[in-house]
Amino acid sequence: MFRTRTISRALWHQQAQIRIHYARPCASILHISKPNFLHSRSLNTVTVEDSYVKKFMNAVGWMDQSRTRLKLTGYFLYECIPENVSYAEWFESLELPDTFASWFVITELHVWMLMVRYMAEDILLPVNETKKYIKGDGHFVRNCIIEALWADVANKIKLLEGANPAIARKQVSELSEQFQASLVAYDEGLSDDKILAAAIWRRFYSLAEDVKAEHIERLVKFIRHQIAELDKIPSDDLRSKPKITWLSILNH
């Protein structure tokens, strides 16, 4: 399946249209000791009672319109990440701290892999010796996944003790920039394990010299295997509510 770096380019264009009203707690305030971030169920995902998917459904109903269904698909796809990924396994096996920052980089990686699969649906054949990208359903679903991610981030930041709204706005803007940079780095590594390993080292471990090489290798293998599994989803199923199976990091 042909992929290009159009994911990142399209996201930069989308950034001008997105207004973020919350912000990322910086490293000094992201660490949560008691209770641990993972152990608070309401912090792990959008709660079922107040899920953004449910609110959206209540507002518009199950209208028989393609865009409405695609938007729901994007939100369902996002929710399948925090609901089904075992963050405890990731923290332990990769020696990551149990913090908001660790939760975000893990979630971000899964969001990127979904984006890779959906954006691949919008790539057209070469036209006049150039490759022309036209926004389609994949682009729209990708935007909805990102929208759900930031809604969840805002929801979690509200629950962090001592979060200053003024500081928060500035820090989510910084987090958004980091997110975009990570997409570029991961895109570059799609066809080269060394580049992908460097992107992982930078994003997950901030280029720390004492990181274990096996952690980086495990993540590279996981990404390759997971993307291969996502590629198996038929194109016709991408418009509905596809079943996403997230692999365990422990098996790589």
Rank of each mutant, 00 (worst) to 15 (best):
F2H: 11
T4V: 06
R5G: 10
I7P: 02
R9H: 13
R9A: 12
H13L: 10
Q15G: 05
A16D: 15
Q17N: 10
Y22C: 08
A23K: 08
R24C: 11
C26H: 06
S28H: 14
I32M: 11
S33E: 15
S33N: 15
N36Q: 12
L38A: 13
L38T: 13
H39E: 13
S42M: 11
N44W: 02
T45H: 12
E49A: 11
K54W: 03
K54D: 11
K54C: 05
K55F: 09
F56I: 11
M57A: 15
N58K: 13
A59K: 14
A59P: 03
M63F: 08
D64Q: 06
D64T: 07
S66C: 09
L70T: 10
K71L: 14
L72K: 01
G74V: 02
Y75N: 05
F76K: 09
L77F: 04
E79P: 01
I81F: 05
P82M: 03
P82Y: 03
N84Y: 08
N84S: 13
F91W: 10
S93T: 11
E95G: 08
L96K: 05
L96R: 01
P97G: 06
D98G: 01
T99L: 00
T99N: 01
I106M: 07
E108S: 06
E108R: 13
L109T: 14
H110A: 06
V111Q: 03
W112G: 00
L114P: 04
M115E: 12
M119H: 05
M119V: 04
M119K: 05
E121H: 11
E121V: 04
D122E: 03
I123K: 11
L124G: 12
V127C: 12
V127G: 07
K131W: 15
K132S: 14
Y133K: 05
Y133F: 12
Y133W: 14
D137A: 15
D137M: 10
F140K: 08
F140E: 07
V141E: 02
R142M: 15
I146F: 06
I146N: 00
E147G: 01
L149V: 05
V153Q: 05
A154M: 10
K158D: 15
L159V: 04
L160W: 01
L160E: 03
L160M: 09
E161W: 01
E161M: 06
A163Q: 04
N164E: 04
E174G: 14
L175G: 07
E177M: 06
F179G: 00
F179I: 00
A181T: 08
A185F: 02
A185D: 14
Y186K: 00
L190S: 04
D193V: 02
I195W: 03
I195Y: 06
L196H: 00
A199Q: 03
I200W: 03
W201D: 06
W201P: 00
R202Q: 10
R203F: 07
Y205S: 02
Y205P: 01
S206Q: 14
S206I: 12
D210Y: 08
V211F: 00
K212C: 14
K212E: 13
H215G: 05
I216N: 02
F222Q: 00
R224C: 07
Q226F: 01
A228E: 10
D231Q: 13
K232I: 02
D236F: 14
D236V: 13
R239G: 05
P242T: 07
S248D: 09
I249P: 01
L250C: 09
N251Y: 09
H252V: 11
H252Q: 14
